[in-house]
């Protein structure tokens, strides 16, 4: 066996990593509690009538996770400001981004043997942008429902328009629920792709979200962007 030379690239600030794991926890909590709120399980009434499922408490947990998640975005933005490795959005305005995305996509479709080496997998970046859109929809519809218990307070005035745009508050509930499922589908794909990249391609996608560094055997094309 030939020894492989590997290089370390520091990419993700602790703030991004903290945000990432808060997001993971919050999404799991919010999905489970959200499903319980939308469809409380049957309790098959017995006497004395009581339920182990306290919807009020479940709703409070859901709201707590939501506020925690939104607040944790501060970490993400702070990391973006202080660290070059943190990026909020893919660089849509750079032409090579598209050809690189196609390069990776063709590889994942088994039409290419391998894709070139990147610090930031452009296809993954694209999917994270998609996740941000989904999360934004969840945040807007979530606050629109939450704040409308007092429509004329500041929260109602800030988010009430969402209900109007969607054509009624019932639609807001439905959109919120559907988008939650879309996030679950994203998560299953994401989980697979990062595991695959870590253990099959040696792209340290999983470990870098703990350590912040990627250890790569090849010189990535976008290594210069860190300088």
């Amino acid at each position: 066996m030939k020894a492989v030379q590997r290089k370390m690239f520091y990419l993700f600030s602790p703030f991004l990593r903290i945000f990432h794991w808060i997001m993971v926890d919050a999404i799991i909590v919010m999905f489970v509690t959200g499903i319980l709120i939308a469809k409380p399980p049957e309790i098959n009434a017995l006497e004395p009538a009581q339920s182990m499922l306290l919807v009020n408490i479940i709703r409070q947990i859901h709201f707590l996770a939501a506020f925690g998640f939104c607040a944790s975005f501060v970490f993400r933005v702070y990391g973006f400001i202080i660290n070059k490795g943190d990026r909020l959005f893919p660089r849509f305005w750079e032409g090579h981004f598209y050809s690189e995305t196609v390069d990776v996509a063709l590889h994942y479709m088994f039409l290419r043997k391998a894709h070139k080496s990147y610090l930031r997998n452009p296809l993954a970046r694209m999917s994270y942008f998609g996740l941000y859109v989904l999360v934004l929809i969840e945040v807007l519809t979530g606050f629109a429902m939450y704040n409308m218990s007092e429509p004329n307070a500041i929260g109602g005035l800030m988010f009430g328009w969402v209900n109007t745009v969607l054509g009624g508050e019932m639609m807001t509930h439905i959109v919120h629920h559907f988008t939650a499922w879309a996030i679950v589908l994203f998560a299953s794909g994401h989980l697979y792709m990062v595991t695959r990249a870590e253990f099959m391609e040696g792209e340290s996608e999983v470990s870098s979200m703990f350590s912040g560094s990627k250890i790569l055997a090849h010189d990535p094309l976008d290594a210069k962007e860190l300088e």
Binding site: A45, S51, M52, L54, V55, N56, I58
Partner: peptide, 9 residues
Amino acid sequence: FFDAGMFAD
């Protein structure tokens, strides 16, 4: 009843 999770199914 909603808060207590007691629903007509």
